[in-house]
Simulated assay, not measured.
Amino acid sequence: MSDNDATPLSSAPNTPPLPYTLRQLECFIAVASSGSIARAAVALNASDSAVSDAITALERALGAELFRRRRSRGATLTSDGITIVPIARRILVEGAELSASVGRELSAVVGPVRIGVIGTLASVILPRLIVAAQRAYPGIQIEYRTGDLASMLTATEGGELDLIITYDYGVPPEYERVRITTTHAVLVVAADHPLASRKRVRLAEIADEPMVMLDIVASRTHTLELMSSQGISPRITHRTSDYELCRALVGRGLGYSLLMRRNLSPVTWDGNRVAYLELDPSPRATEVLMVWPHNPIPPRVAAVLTCMKQLRAEFEASMG
């Protein structure tokens, strides 16, 4: 092929220039995440007017209203805005990956890493992980939400989450995973309960008493399966999705509960005490996992996974 046969870059396939900029998309995602132009401006270290102008320019370029802006209520996504959120996130991620792919410094590992966490695990894992990631990779920003596994899997498939921290049941087999730690269910009773001084207790010994159910999907499923395996139908008198309220109700003598083992103070938030008793026979060990879809992961997500692996000894102590 002669030089004359080469296709110059200027005559490459006719792709029109993009009508928007990465900075406009960055402002859009910041407002969508915070619900406020003012809060987005603070996060971006920009002026309110600069963020507002970027959103206006993006809306003009796309020919669509992306937010309903109300002075007293902030900025609410429209249907069009909701539609393009995952697309805008992907574009920003790919832009960060483009820079990271040729960079060799820590500063090349940049961008948001969005993590979904089962609520009862959030306070144990997230604070340590955020601090470790910020120290090791200053360019990474960890964003997080709590919820049940089903909603977080949906969010992950839609590109809204990069990673999920959860227990090992219900995770699709095609998901990649890293074990964070291992825990197991224990019986929780009030400190003045007749069984409180025991080291180990059979579920049958307490089956007829009222139960306080930690009513989140992961906990409820595990608890009911465990009790069903021993032919026990619990007499549930209280249900709550709040971990500390569950402990407080138990501490007041309103029932027993089954919770995953954690190194917590026996004192509840309202000043009473609970006792943690091992079950006989011992229930199966439950793994706490970080999971993600079986796809190549960008450097920023790989960096957070590295931090998580380095913290496993600390998490073992927290859940032991």
Rank of each mutant, 00 (worst) to 15 (best):
G158P: 01
A191P: 04
G103S: 04
L203Y: 02
I91K: 01
I87R: 00
A108K: 03
R284G: 15
L98F: 11
N14C: 10
A185T: 11
R239I: 08
P173Y: 11
E209Y: 10
L289V: 15
P16H: 10
A100I: 12
W292T: 09
I115M: 06
S318G: 10
F315R: 03
S36V: 07
L224S: 08
V189T: 04
M227D: 12
T240N: 05
G119D: 15
A136F: 00
A54T: 09
S47V: 01
I236F: 04
L279N: 00
A43F: 01
R60E: 09
E205H: 05
E287D: 15
T15P: 03
R220Q: 08
N4Q: 13
P19E: 10
A6W: 11
S228I: 04
P138C: 06
E157Y: 07
S228K: 13
R90D: 15
L258H: 05
R252L: 11
R177E: 11
V110S: 15
L277T: 02
E160T: 01
I55W: 01
A190F: 05
S318F: 14
C307L: 06
D242P: 04
M227Y: 05
W269G: 12
L44A: 04
T221Y: 13
L161I: 01
P194L: 10
V201F: 02
I206Q: 02
R312C: 13
P173M: 09
I37Q: 03
T166C: 13
I84Q: 02
T146N: 07
I164C: 13
A100M: 05
L259E: 07
A155H: 02
A196V: 08
S79T: 15
Q24V: 00
G231E: 08
P293F: 09
L203E: 09
R235P: 09
Y167I: 11
E94F: 06
T166Y: 09
Y169P: 01
L203H: 01
A196F: 10
C246V: 14
S265C: 08
G159R: 02
S99H: 10
E94H: 10
R69P: 02
R247K: 06
A50H: 12
P296W: 10
A275Q: 08
T154S: 11
A155P: 02
A303I: 09
T237P: 01
M213S: 12
L203P: 02
D215I: 09
L22R: 07
I216N: 05
I164S: 03
T240W: 02
E176N: 11
A100H: 00
I236W: 04
S233Q: 15
I87N: 00
K309I: 15
A313Y: 10
S101V: 07
Q310I: 09
T166N: 01
A207C: 14
R23K: 15
G147E: 13
V186Q: 00
N272Q: 10
P298H: 13
G111V: 05
L203R: 04
Y256V: 11
I84V: 08
S11Y: 10
G63H: 01
E65T: 07
S265L: 06
R261E: 09
G253M: 09
V102F: 14
A313F: 14
L305A: 04
E174C: 11
L195V: 13
R177C: 14
A133M: 11
P86R: 04
A30D: 00
A6I: 14
A30N: 04
V31H: 00
A108T: 05
V31R: 00
D148L: 12
I29W: 03
A122Y: 09
G111W: 05
